[in-house]
Design a protein around this nucleic acid. Structure first.
Lengths: 166, 166
DNA sequence: CCCTGATATTTCGCATGCGAAAGATTCGCG
DNA sequence: CGCGAATCTTTCGCATGCGAAATATCAGGG
């Protein structure tokens, strides 16, 4: 648990990286929100709309997995989108527990009119990096993510930290 | 505006980096939340508690700047913390528009009992990188953040994208 | 068939989180 | 001084976002 000896400079670099990650994440959300606002939508609603356009019908669980939210959260989002006539719920025939979410013509029309995918701006910023930088960034970020996962299991020990790779 | 020609491999690397950023951010929030839960707090409340412990009294605006939230959001958080007796509001003498948030003895006690700072785990993961990697990561992330800022100003054209560096 | 456990969704209560508008106070300038 | 702009905080309405409990359905064993 004893931290490795770090020079003050390095310590502050840690904070700067942290700042950058937080900035990039919040900014990408803000951008999605701004684009959504122009179509009278909210950020998550735009995300769902483009997801359904690209992938076709999805179950509510499938949707919540995709956007990394709980089922109960997505239920509310779909409620409001259904109220606006953008999607419809349709119970599965094979398994009547499952509800598929489907775009209405109105929803599909709206999705078509929004040219940019959510995150597109973030992506284009990433693409301004050189191939070399991109590769390096990916390598380090992957290493970081792996390291965080390790520490989480050992220290925080959340009851069952969604063990997807078991 | 035309994106540089990307190989499919590079394109998928973009998505992987995006995934990693999102993972790191959401995971760090989840960790904070888990730590907070043990002290009967919420994530943002823990963040505020530790912030006040480290920096002393802060105005509500100062606080909201620190945690990158709107004033109206922080007002609610402070309301609930005040209800729990963790902080008190105190009007500034010099400028009676300003409200300072101050830890109560109970709040200070609680803060002391929570050894880890929010984000600590994330930090220790960052510190597992070599100095070389850290420097590279910081350089690329900074470049990325700058690039995003540029694109935002030009494309999305948010009314006044909080120009802090003007 | 009936019971039990598992799975998918919804409901509920609560805590962010935001933006617009309102309220209080201060500041600048004539 | 006095008035309007600027600043700080709160209020309000709404949309996430979560976890626990309720509901509905399916799958399997007896």
């Amino acid at each position: 648990m004893s931290p490795p000896p770090l020079t003050p400079d390095l310590k502050s670099e840690v904070d700067q990286v942290l700042e950058a990650v937080i900035y990039l994440y919040t900014e990408s959300r803000r951008i999605t929100k701004e684009l959504a606002r122009r179509a009278e939508l909210t950020g998550p609603q735009l995300t769902v709309l483009k997801l359904l356009e690209q992938l076709g019908d999805l179950s509510l669980s499938g949707l919540s997995e995709r956007i990394r939210a709980q089922n109960s959260t997505v239920t509310g989002i779909i409620d409001r989108m259904e109220r606006e006539g953008l999607v419809v719920r349709e119970r599965s025939q094979e398994d009547r527990r499952v509800v598929f979410i489907r775009l209405t013509p109105k929803g599909r029309e709206l999705a078509k009119d929004i040219p940019v995918e959510p995150m597109e701006i973030f992506r284009s910023a990433l693409e301004s990096l050189s191939a070399e930088e991109m590769r390096t960034l990916l390598r380090i970020m992957t290493k970081l993510a792996k390291r965080v996962r390790q520490i989480v299991r050992r220290d925080v020990g959340a009851p069952d930290t969604r063990d997807e790779e078991k």
